[in-house]
Design a protein around this nucleic acid. Structure first.
Lengths: 261, 261
DNA sequence: CGAATAGTGTCTGTAAGACACTATTTT
DNA sequence: AAAATAGTGTCTTACAGACACTATTCG
């Protein structure tokens, strides 16, 4: 049998039906709080619950491409525009527990997107309701959160995994710069750590680390900071450098050694 | 079309069929070299090429469960036995590029398994040929490798990603202990780093780190090492501790800051 | 001026890098 | 004793934590 013959005799329909989707946890900082974009479901199952934006992977679409498309649809910006803003997208993990969607087998390739404050989600779109929720209002991390939205499917788990991914990537990469708009002051960058981790790295330690890591940030050309504030010395402004990995890492202070691998 | 609309109008056989598979990169150290289990394909496509062990995800099977099942099939051991040996399994990444399998759309959830020297793969099995290959004989990392096997599908990429995952996890977790059989000497553990990274951490630095990290290793009860060697002081023996994360990490010495995120 | 924000100096403690040294076994 | 392997002592350097200090702006 040649490969040609094999391909012609192959019956692709001899499989159980299953769907492959892409979900995106879009994280950003709004009003000083780490927030995530959720979409309210208009139909069963989980009608009225909130879900991560997501959808089916097109037949000729790569997984990352599908995730970018979801981002484009939610923000009404093109991938090029999103990248220009510094938006970072990466694959998180794939979720496929049987029964996670009551209708059929759905395997969801979850992604995480990090960006500076984005335009409000798809204004004037159809029925679907989309908004950013502050993580602390979601009740996914054991906090008391009154009026917390119900999350659809296993999206609580995905949100938790996304948070852990982002928190740990702040430690050993320059990812934090994706949360701020250019140009930015070091105090803004430090606030990213504070908001995402829940505790700011010590001021001087932070500045030394950022400034001594080649390519973490680069000085913005002779730009000086705001003057419309309540006073205060104007900050030096910076842009993202090309560096990605931090060596050594800037660790959170209180991490326990007996965590999951 | 939104996810909801799509799902409710979904006729499973009216759409392009797609398969979800699980692949496992089984890494271990054999004869002092980092090695990976590959299976020679007996059918088209890529007949005769070598592939990661893998297969379809059962309709009622979780992804991780399917990966364990693959491991069980390849090693003829049960999951409980594998875990007893210290085998570690984790999800790596999902690969879904259109065209990666010429037959149909195949989305592959790749996993990485780490274990001590395992029994030779499924002796007396059917036609399929399975063996461990030393990574350096694979030619996936730019080395010159004569008689390197042809790898099927996009498995070169998966192997590379698996290697990078394991190398980097040695830095910040106690994963190295999954490569050795209990009880083990610290010199064996250090050899894991040497083999996986290509360079050993400095002796004293290594010992200090391992011994001072609570729960990295625990002393084996009054056990002392081999006597059939070519002489040498017998080592103290240890077992895996419960700890998983290293704080701070034990970094490779030569990592560049401008790598991929 | 005081308040507010940005940024520095410097001391201390921890841990990594380097490498020479000691210890315990076999032949 | 020599070879082989295991393990230690110790000096130096890098860098994180702490925190008091200076700098520059606004009202």
């Amino acid at each position: 049998m040649t490969e040609q013959e094999f391909l012609e005799s192959y019956d692709p329909h001899a499989f159980d039906p299953q769907a492959v989707t892409v979900d995106v946890a879009v994280l950003t900082i709004r009003d000083g709080r780490l927030s995530i974009l959720l979409v309210q479901r208009g139909d069963h199952p989980y009608k009225g619950s909130w879900a991560l934006p997501g959808g089916f992977v097109g037949p000729d679409e790569d997984l990352e491409q599908a995730a970018w498309r979801e981002l484009e649809e939610e923000t009404a910006l093109t991938q090029a525009e999103l990248e220009e803003l510094g938006v970072h997208l990466e694959q998180l993990k794939t979720y496929g527990r049987p029964g996670r969607d009551p209708r059929m087998r759905v395997v969801s390739v979850a992604h995480v997107a990090i960006g500076p404050r984005l335009p409000s989600p798809r204004a004037g779109d159809d029925a679907a309701n989309a908004r950013f929720w502050a993580i602390e209002d979601l009740g996914v991390e054991g906090e008391l959160a009154v009026d917390a939205p119900q999350l659809a499917f296993d999206h609580v788990e995905i949100v938790r995994d996304a948070l852990e991914r982002v928190r740990s990537k702040l430690e050993y990469t320059a990812l934090a710069t994706s949360f701020v708009e250019e140009p930015f002051a070091l105090s803004e960058l430090r606030r990213v750590y504070e908001v995402v981790w829940g505790a700011a790295p010590e001021l001087n330690t932070f500045r030394r680390k950022v400034l001594k890591t080649p390519g973490f940030v680069v000085p913005a050309e002779d730009e000086r900071g705001a003057s419309t504030d309540r006073g205060g010395r104007p900050p030096q402004l910076f842009r993202r450098g090309g560096a990605v990995l931090l060596h050594p890492a800037m660790l959170r202070r209180d991490v326990d050694a007996d965590e999951e691998l």
